[in-house]
Computed example of a mutant assay.
Amino acid sequence: MGMTVSLAGKVALVTGGSRGIGRAVVERLTSDGARVVFTYHSAEAEATKLAEETGAEPVRCDQADLDTLPAIFAPVRDGLDILVNNAGIAFARPIAEITVDDFDRLLTINTKFPTFAIRTAIPLLRDGGRIINLSSINTALPSPGAGLYSASKAALEQITRVASRELGPRRITVNTVSPGATDTDMLRSVNTPEGLDRAVTFTALQRLGTPADVAAVIAFLAGPDAAWITGQNLHAGGGYVI
């Protein structure tokens, strides 16, 4: 028997696809048979290489600027089945030190842009489509310095839940995936080696996650077997939060 390609004929848009979890999502969705368009910001070489390896289509995007939204949806204007809002930024800043610019930048990139990406996607999504938003374990485990980051993701979680109600009549599911400690450039940029070691000890499965671990959960939500799951936040963290 041949391999079943679960997403054959589906069209997906993945934001922040050139590195980390987003890259793994592009690799997984293309291997599952989807046509994938993905965005990148500055990692042009990585984006080009990924496109060559997978056949996915890269589009440059700056999530700090909502005017870039039309360009990223142009390749899928004939119809979309899966939107993965993955792109985001993180930095640690105690509340006593945050600036207005910090707030505006983080909330725009992590919350405002994904929200308007959903709005832009709604008329393009076919009935039975999928929206998957990336959050963070930080919304369940508040930690010093993560105030703005946690707030940006918590807001997106609420948008997800409301969208699941609004789009449910069209059988469009809307879910959140919250990765745990996942071994990416972003994780290493905001944690010390000692912090990463601690994360492993906190994790029930006793290791850091890989981008492919998280991509597998996203692929499940994007696929036919997850049609009865909506409005949920799946913690893909190996038991970091239980």
Rank of each mutant, 00 (worst) to 15 (best):
E52P: 07
R28W: 00
V11K: 15
M3T: 15
L83M: 01
E27F: 01
A140E: 09
I118Y: 00
E57C: 07
A24M: 08
G55E: 12
T39L: 11
P114G: 05
A56Y: 11
N138G: 14
G2N: 14
P142T: 01
S6N: 12
D104Y: 08
L134F: 07
F113Y: 13
T4G: 06
N110L: 12
F38N: 05
E27Y: 03
G22P: 01
P70K: 09
A43I: 07
C61G: 01
D67M: 10
T120I: 08
A24R: 08
E53W: 03
D65F: 01
P114S: 04
A51I: 07
I118Q: 02
A8C: 05
I118C: 13
D81A: 13
V14S: 04
T108A: 09
G2H: 14
R105E: 08
V11A: 11
V84T: 04
R105S: 12
L29F: 00
P58S: 08
A12Y: 05
A74G: 10
I132M: 02
A56D: 12
L124Q: 06
M3L: 14
L50R: 11
A74P: 01
V84A: 02
L107S: 02
I95M: 14
F38A: 03
M3Y: 04
R23D: 00
A90I: 06
V5D: 12
I122A: 12
L66M: 04
T115P: 01
G55S: 12
A71H: 06
R77T: 15
T99W: 00
I109S: 11
E97D: 15
S143C: 01
L124N: 04
L50F: 03
L13G: 04
A90T: 01
E44T: 14
V37D: 05
A12K: 06
A90K: 01
I98C: 10
E46P: 09
E97G: 03
S136D: 04
P114R: 08
S42E: 13
R28T: 14
R119M: 03
S42F: 06
G128S: 11
A87R: 14
A96V: 15
D62F: 09
N85T: 04
L141D: 09
F116T: 06
